[in-house]
Simulated assay, not measured.
Amino acid sequence: MKNLLFTFFLMISVQLSFAQGNAAASKVITKQEQQLLDLSKQKWLWMADKNVDSLTSFFHEKSVFVHMGGSWGKSRELSVIKSGGIWYKKADVHEASVQIIGNTAILLNRITLLAVVGGNDVTNPFMVTEVYVNENGSWKLASLSFTKLST
């Protein structure tokens, strides 16, 4: 009887796990969600290339940036990138997701960031929260926050 109950619960557990895995894997990405995911990838490239011209029009005028060492607005973030105070050399994105709520989108990226900070190469795992707002049909980055992950 114990073996029969054990087998029954094991079968149900396997079926539930399989159903949950299929539901997550079958989430359809909309065109707008894909556009935001692509914008996020492009942002990492612009930051690595220190392309402040593209970032200037991409960052919302009231955007905020949260780092391990503090928080600031658009002009300081652009200055930090341009001067190399933080050089975002390479962001390896391991997972990315997006949720759109009206004219606001929230992206979560689990990344490993290779950066140069104060002349030193550093590599850190982060969960990065990006908030975008859609104004006049164009997505602008409103907030970029880095949360260091424990490994």
Rank of each mutant, 00 (worst) to 15 (best):
Y88N: 08
K89Q: 13
I86E: 09
A48R: 06
K41F: 07
D38F: 00
K43W: 14
V64D: 01
L55F: 03
H94Q: 06
A23T: 07
G85M: 02
V80P: 00
I86Y: 11
G73I: 13
V66G: 01
S75Q: 15
F65W: 14
A96I: 04
S75N: 15
S54A: 14
S71M: 12
L45Q: 13
Q34H: 11
L36A: 08
V28R: 04
L37Y: 05
S79R: 10
G84N: 12
I100H: 14
G70S: 00
A96L: 07
K50G: 03
W46P: 03
E33D: 03
G73A: 15
H94T: 06
Q35C: 03
D53N: 11
G85T: 07
H67W: 03
A23D: 11
G85R: 03
Q35N: 08
N51C: 09
Q34T: 07
I86R: 10
Q99A: 10
I29K: 02
F65V: 09
T30F: 05
I86N: 10
H94S: 07
I81N: 05
F65I: 06
L45G: 00
A96S: 15
I86L: 10
L37K: 13
S75K: 15
H67P: 01
K41S: 15
G70F: 01
Y88R: 00
I81H: 05
W72A: 07
V80R: 05
Q32W: 03
R76T: 02
